Amino acid sequence: MPITLEAESTLTDRYQTTVPESVRRTLKLGKRDKLHYTIRANGEVVLTRATGAEGDDPALGAFLGFLAADISRHPERLQGIDADLVARIQSLTEGVEVDLDAPLSADDE
């Protein structure tokens, strides 16, 4: 029979808690790691270590967050792409095939 680890922690007035040392050790958690919560229909909560997608780029994530916030604050600044620009882009990329799963060459790294 598998061993079950149980631990408790207390919520502060700000709804924060400290993850017990035994849980941190079991999940191999370090400072700034993220946690993932799965809440089941019966009220049971499963806590796991969150894993980022392979190759996540923190700079890209921050930039996309900046764009999303800017679009939310200033939707009036959004502009459609001109049909002539779309045609120009299509003409420049016509016949170009890209394999997104192919490894980068040494020059591209």
Rank of each mutant, 00 (worst) to 15 (best):
Met1Gln: 08
Met1Asn: 05
Pro2Ser: 13
Ile3Val: 15
Thr4Ser: 12
Thr4Glu: 09
Thr4Lys: 13
Thr4Met: 10
Leu5Lys: 09
Glu6Gln: 07
Ala7Val: 10
Ala7Ile: 08
Glu8Ser: 12
Glu8Val: 10
Ser9Arg: 07
Ser9Thr: 15
Thr10Phe: 12
Thr10Gln: 14
Leu11Ser: 08
Leu11Ala: 03
Leu11Trp: 12
Asp13Gly: 14
Asp13Pro: 09
Tyr15Ser: 11
Gln16Ala: 13
Thr18Phe: 09
Thr18Pro: 01
Thr18Arg: 06
Thr18Tyr: 11
Val19Thr: 06
Val19Arg: 05
Val19Trp: 05
Pro20Asp: 00
Pro20Leu: 02
Glu21Tyr: 15
Ser22Lys: 04
Ser22Leu: 02
Ser22Met: 04
Val23Cys: 01
Arg24Pro: 04
Arg24Phe: 04
Arg24Gly: 09
Arg24Thr: 06
Arg25Thr: 14
Leu27Pro: 02
Lys28Trp: 01
Lys28Tyr: 02
Leu29Asp: 06
Gly30Pro: 02
Gly30Thr: 03
Lys31Phe: 11
Lys31Ser: 07
Lys31Asn: 14
Arg32Trp: 10
Asp33Thr: 10
Asp33Lys: 13
Leu35Pro: 02
Leu35Cys: 03
Leu35Lys: 04
Tyr37Pro: 03
Tyr37Cys: 03
Tyr37Asn: 04
Ile39Gly: 00
Ile39Gln: 02
Arg40Val: 00
Ala41Tyr: 13
Asn42Gly: 01
Asn42Ile: 00
Asn42Ser: 04
Asn42Trp: 01
Asn42Tyr: 00
Gly43Ser: 09
Glu44Arg: 02
Glu44Phe: 00
Val45Ala: 01
Val46Asn: 00
Leu47Gly: 01
Ala50Ile: 04
Glu54Ala: 13
Gly55Gln: 11
Asp56Pro: 00
Asp56Asn: 05
Asp57Glu: 14
Pro58Ile: 11
Ala59Gly: 15
Leu60Ser: 14
Leu60Glu: 15
Gly61Lys: 14
Gly61Cys: 08
Phe66Met: 10
Phe66Asn: 11
Phe66Cys: 08
Ala68Ile: 02
Ala68Ser: 10
Ala69Met: 03
Ile71Asn: 01
Arg73Ser: 09
Arg73Asn: 12
His74Asp: 12
Pro75Gln: 09
Leu78Glu: 15
Gln79Ser: 05
Gly80Leu: 10
Ile81Gly: 02
Ala83Trp: 02
Ala83Pro: 09
Asp84Glu: 12
Asp84Asn: 09
Val86Gly: 03
Val86Pro: 01
Arg88Pro: 00
Arg88Lys: 13
Ile89Glu: 07
Ile89Leu: 14
Ile89Trp: 11
Ile89Phe: 10
Gln90Phe: 11
Ser91Trp: 07
Leu92Tyr: 07
Leu92Ala: 13
Leu92Thr: 05
Leu92Val: 06
Thr93His: 03
Thr93Asp: 03
Glu94Asp: 14
Gly95Ala: 05
Gly95Lys: 09
Val96Phe: 14
Val98Phe: 14
Val98Ala: 15
Asp101Ile: 06
Pro103Asn: 04
Leu104Val: 07
Leu104Ala: 12
Ser105Tyr: 13
Asp107Glu: 15
Asp108Val: 08
